[in-house]
């Protein structure tokens, strides 16, 4: 089975709120002293792919797009022993939203040929819209199944499982299919072995330009311009918490219990 995993590099979601800043002119987050990390759901997707490969004759290709920094994400994927890695070198596209991203990815996938499984993370830790998988599928004319947490290869294609609001679902799907992966107990990203981290820097990584995949900046920008960020700001913290006071702890607990009971009883 040929598996493609799309990886996104994002601003560390765990950067402390004090260190997080936005550029009011460019309407973008400022990197500052924060690090760039691979989006956690993408890592879950990669882990799912690695597990699939363990039980089958499969090949994993990792792909990302972005400036040179994004290469680090692919090096990490190499450390986890993906078979191939591609980076589409894109200039920094302002507000490259899901539509812009899907445009780049779909064009690259088309150029790479057929994959049986195209896996993406459920959403990203920065803009977190969870749209890219669906858009890639539409652009490639493929089916898409979202929020998948388990994949099994069967004769007819793949069995996919997911948790939805109405219960657990099992799906059977032909391949190729686009799948968005969510986090679950079984796909916690593994840690690479040190030797593999060292070797990862020697692996050959393919870098393509937009031109190589038949796109230009303008086309991507046009796709991305379907939506536009008009404001980006850090919300002011409004501390309106009323701290419960009282002479004794008993009094304070009684007061707290009363307030809780009032709400609970009105439900």
């Amino acid at each position: 089975m040929k598996i493609l995993v799309c990886l996104k590099q994002i601003l560390d979601p765990e950067v402390s709120p004090r260190d997080f800043q936005v550029d009011p002119d460019r309407l973008e987050a400022v990197l500052g002293s924060a690090s760039l990390v691979t989006n956690i759901f993408c890592e879950n997707a990669l882990e799912t792919a690695l597990q699939l490969r363990e039980g089958s004759d499969s090949e994993i290709t990792a792909m990302t797009f972005g400036p040179d920094d994004a290469e680090e994400t692919l090096r990490k994927a190499f450390a986890l022993k993906v078979d191939h890695a591609y980076r589409i070198a894109t200039p920094e596209i302002p507000h490259c939203n899901s539509a812009g991203a899907a445009t780049v990815l779909a064009a690259a996938i088309k150029k790479l040929g057929t994959f049986d499984l195209i896996m993406l993370g459920r959403e990203s830790g920065d803009w977190g819209e969870g749209q890219t998988a669906g858009l890639v599928a539409e652009m490639l004319g493929l089916n898409c199944v979202s929020f998948v947490d388990q994949i099994d290869i069967v004769d007819a294609g793949v069995h996919l499982q997911r948790q939805t609001d109405v219960g657990r679902e099992k799906l059977v799907s032909d391949t190729p299919v686009v799948v968005s992966i969510t986090n679950t107990e079984t796909n916690v990203p593994r840690i690479p072995k040190t030797r593999d981290i060292m070797l990862a820097h020697r692996k050959e990584l393919t870098t393509w330009t937009l031109d190589d995949i038949g796109l230009d900046e303008e086309k991507v920008t046009r796709a991305a311009n379907a939506t536009q960020v008009v404001e980006l700001y850090i919300p002011e913290e409004t501390s309106s918490c009323e701290f419960i006071t009282g002479d004794s702890l008993d009094d304070r607990i009684r007061e707290l219990a009363q307030r809780i009971a009032n709400i609970v009883q009105s439900v």
């Binding site: 560390d12 690090s35 593994r190 840690i191 690479p192 072995k193 040190t194 030797r195």
Partner: peptide
């Protein structure tokens, strides 16, 4: 266990990844 086998308690994984990514 850590470098060759990549096997260790999960909460340590969080600490190690954090050291690596955020220092």
């Amino acid at each position: 266990l850590v470098m060759e086998d990549a096997q260790f308690p999960r909460t340590l994984q969080g600490a190690l990844t954090s050291m690596e990514q955020r220092g």
